[in-house]
């Protein structure tokens, strides 16, 4: 049972990097890929239908951390206190930009929230990079974290660029990428977290909650996995490239 839940945790964590990675990457690239307001609108519209289905993977990671590894949860989050706070603030600012950018008229309003998306995305990438480096160093936050942040930012930007080239072939990037290329860039985005997770597996497994707790979690959660996966697949089937032309302005 503890192996099964470690698997769930790993899938959720790596899934988060593979999916939300391209949203964060495109957020960072927003001023580059969208030099005009119209261009930025196209970039945001390309990722918009995926974002709610992507960012929720991290909410699930935190939930499993709390339910399956309760004694690791406090240690990790408290140990990375400033990085977790900056991750949350960045996440909030990025999301606010997405939700608010089209809710009022005026170029300054939309450009301002586009700035929030970009800033928040950089904050997310650098917080993650610094957090992964700190976790690898036994939870000591060092200036080396900045290098980690730059590496994660580069990986996410590559993933975001590939996603845009897949979703809008010949569009904002001017390039075309296949689904296979997107899979490769997803692996690049998730690789650092995978390496860390492999190293941390024994420590994490040693912090697993007792069997009684895991049984309750299995009983209450596993029956929903087909709907959870089905919803995710449905998102990709509905909003994939060439499914339907963009005739209406995106809600984000």
């Amino acid at each position: 049972m503890d192996i099964l839940w470690f698997g769930v945790f790993a899938v959720l964590l790596l899934g988060y990097f593979a999916l939300e990675g391209f949203d964060i990457g495109l957020g960072m690239l927003l001023p580059v890929l969208g030099r005009s307001q119209e261009g930025r609108d196209r970039v945001v519209a390309a990722m918009a239908p995926y974002i709610l289905a992507n960012e929720v993977w991290l909410v699930a990671v935190a939930g499993v951390l709390f339910g399956v590894y309760p004694r690791a949860e406090g240690e990790v989050l408290f140990g990375l206190y400033p990085l977790v706070v900056s991750l949350l603030v960045s996440w909030i600012v990025r999301d606010a930009g997405l939700w608010f950018r089209r809710r009022a008229d005026g170029r300054a309003w939309r450009a301002g929230w586009d700035g929030a998306i970009c800033l928040g995305s950089y904050g997310l990438a650098f917080s993650w990079g610094a957090a992964l480096v700190a976790l690898a160093n036994g939870m000591s936050i060092t200036p080396l974290g900045l290098a980690g942040g730059a590496a994660i930012a580069a990986a996410f930007a590559f993933h975001g660029w590939t996603f845009a080239s897949w979703r809008l072939p010949g569009g904002v990037t001017g390039a075309r990428r296949s689904g296979r290329a997107l899979l490769v860039s997803a692996c690049v985005a998730a690789a650092p977290a995978a390496a860390l997770l492999a190293g941390a597996a024994p420590w994490l497994l040693g912090h697993t909650a007792p069997a009684d707790t895991l049984n309750v979690l299995s009983l209450m959660i596993l029956p929903f996995t087909p709907i959870m996966l089905g919803g995710q697949v449905w998102v990709w089937r509905t909003f994939g490239p060439g499914r339907a032309p963009e005739r209406t302005p995106s809600f984000f």
């Binding site: 239908p49 709610l52 289905a53 939930g63 909650a209």
Partner: peptide, 26 residues
């Protein structure tokens, strides 16, 4: 108390909010 208190929170994130967010996007 995480062995007890964590369970409803974990179930909420996976069994409820994960679906809510995915289907809200749809």
């Amino acid at each position: 108390a995480g062995d007890v208190f964590g369970a409803p929170l974990a179930i909420e994130t996976l069994g409820a909010f994960f679906l809510e967010s995915t289907f809200l996007g749809l």
